[in-house]
Nucleic acid binder design. Structure first.
Lengths: 343, 343
DNA sequence: ACTTTAATTTTACGCGCGTCAAATAAATAT
DNA sequence: ATATTTATTTGACGCGCGTAAAATTAAAGT
């Protein structure tokens, strides 16, 4: 950085003694120039302060090195964690991630995709709301930009899907709960904003049948993303009314469970798996706060990093091949049982 | 959208019957063209599918309509909430917000600023880590791009600061705790990653003096952003050893308090303000989960929206004036006491 | 040393838009 | 109706870089 700032690639070319087209090649792909040239360029980069103008670089390209990452709600720690993992994977592969949150609003999801469209991303990693009504928009987008879905599946849409195997994970915790006490009831939102919820209910039903138990499903009224509030209010109602058929409740996700635990505390109900406990509560997702609930929450841990990295690497594979996948891929990772104190 | 997609402004010009320079003016500022022309353009926009190419638009501009928003850690709900508020404010003012998280890593904060630099943002809203060592980098950045700080102050740096008045807020909760029971001890991290923590300690000391009580400060070992874990481990240690001088503990922030509450639960210590309770615990920030702790956490609520909007509008003011502020501004909002069950 | 192959340089054009100056047209004031 | 002001059009250039073709140079193979 001994010199003045260089204003464009031309100036850097004369300063470094490398022709501009070669520099252009280098910046697009450092491996595309001869080793000795690359070293000369990198030497010069240390001496002079120059970076290609982002806007000029992308102006002509039909595809940029940008990758859009769209999650439904960054305020949910699950998505902020997995969003971070995805960002890191993109950076490591030489792409520029652009992380957008839809703030719990499906309309914003469409807006985000539209906003991304003008950024000409090479590809998009999308954790969709998964509502049926959004399907057409997302498929239309996927026609222009390769999209890999993660977390929530939209059957048959986009290039690939990567997520947790809800059938495996729910079966795992149902089996644990059955072995260690009364078979679980299932507590969920009446109108879930996420297709995983439906998979989990379905899996609960099948799993209970397989184990020869009668399933009991309790659905909470309430819309939106205030899961804790809904779990708390509706959980309190059900617990006060002694509505649950057994002393064990499996919640469709941790945030509902967190709300319900707080309601149980308020009602003076002893939650836990030990003697003297009146109720067992379990969740699903291993939310970052689940370790600090009272009692700590027994739940299913999802492999954030694996999901994020597989989703990213699948997209990179498509981008490298410069062609779409011949067949849609679906990768499901197993959930892991996290035994804590609540069940 | 009856027509084919238009490829550039020239095509849109012939299709709409408006000259390209006029269209260019319109897209830069719709209010800069005559009302009748504006209506014709907007009519045409409905008919034809055209949007200016983001990259071409920004190529020549020395300042774009982008605003960088940098927060230390999006995984912390406080920052994801306030980040969202800031984004909305930018959109409402016609700017494009670019939200970046430093993932708890000060080096990433520098990287984020560098990344923003090549995006030529009109301005930046920064919630800094606030470490002394980062000061020079941030001030250097501020020389090129106007920066407004929020949440964490760096004394004298950048154009303005907007945050919560920790002296007011801590005094408020100290006074409440003194009035309603034993005066509080103060529980914080030994090496806090945030200057607010220092302000809060200072304020606790002054407030206790003013009320004629002896202050007691307890510092938790531990680095990084795992506040709950630190609060839990160190809180358990202190509670087991009966180290706290009074039965009331004010935590420097809610996440520490959440960890401590979980530790208290594990130790069988009854937390709360009612009869039969052995310990009162209070926090600061009104973290989204504080409502669902057991018992629910008494704390100080910050006005996220007010802070975000004031920070944004201060930046807009600078951008409109096209000149820096004659004097650095500092705006502090009052915290509000949120009385729940834990104290 | 000579041929073959690969990489670099030279030259030149285009991308989509910002922006300027001069000419023209429309709206407003007189 | 005419003068004045304001807005639009026309025409032209430049921004920083991608990229293509031809000429040149360097590296690798024999």
């Amino acid at each position: 950085m001994e010199q003045r700032k260089l204003r464009n690639m031309e100036e850097f070319a004369v300063a470094s003694g490398i022709s501009r087209p070669t520099l252009s090649k280098y910046f697009n792909d450092p491996a595309s120039v001869r080793r000795s040239t690359r070293e000369r360029i990198e030497q010069a980069l240390k001496q002079y302060d120059y970076r290609p103008n982002v806007y000029a670089v992308n102006q002509n390209r039909s595809k940029t090195k940008n990758i859009g990452v769209v999650v439904p709600n960054l305020a949910d720690p699950f998505f902020s964690e997995i969003g971070r993992e995805v960002e890191l994977a993109c950076l490591a592969a030489g792409y520029s991630p652009i992380l957008l949150s839809s703030h719990g609003n499906p309309k914003q999801e469409r807006d985000n995709l539209e906003a991304l469209r003008s950024l000409k991303p090479a590809g998009v990693l999308l954790a969709p709301f998964g509502r049926v009504s959004d399907r057409a928009d997302i498929e239309a987008f996927n026609r222009d930009v390769p999209v890999v879905l993660f977390d929530a599946n939209i059957e048959g849409a986009c290039e690939a899907f990567v997520g947790t195997d809800n059938f495996q994970s729910v079966d795992l915790i149902v089996e644990y709960l059955c072995r260690s006490g009364e078979p679980p009831c299932f507590f969920e939102m009446k109108s879930p904003s996420n297709p995983n919820a439906n998979k989990r209910r379905q899996s609960y039903l099948e799993s209970m049948q397989r184990h020869g138990h009668t399933p009991h499903i309790y659905q909470a009224e309430g819309e939106g993303w205030k899961f804790e509030a809904i779990g708390s209010i509706e959980g309190a109602r059900l617990m006060s009314a002694r509505a649950f058929a057994t002393n064990t409740v499996l919640c469709s996700n941790d945030r509902l469970a967190i709300g319900m635990l707080s309601a149980a505390y308020g009602l003076g109900i002893a939650v836990g798996h030990g003697v003297g406990s009146a109720l067992r509560i379990a969740g699903h997702d291993d939310h970052p706060f689940s370790r600090y609930t009272c009692p700590s929450l027994t739940t299913i841990g999802q492999d954030y990093a694996a999901i994020a990295n597989r989703a990213a690497s699948t997209l990179f594979r498509i981008l490298d091949a410069e062609t779409r996948l011949s067949e849609r891929e679906e990768t499901l990772f197993d959930g892991k049982l996290v035994m804590r104190d609540s069940a």
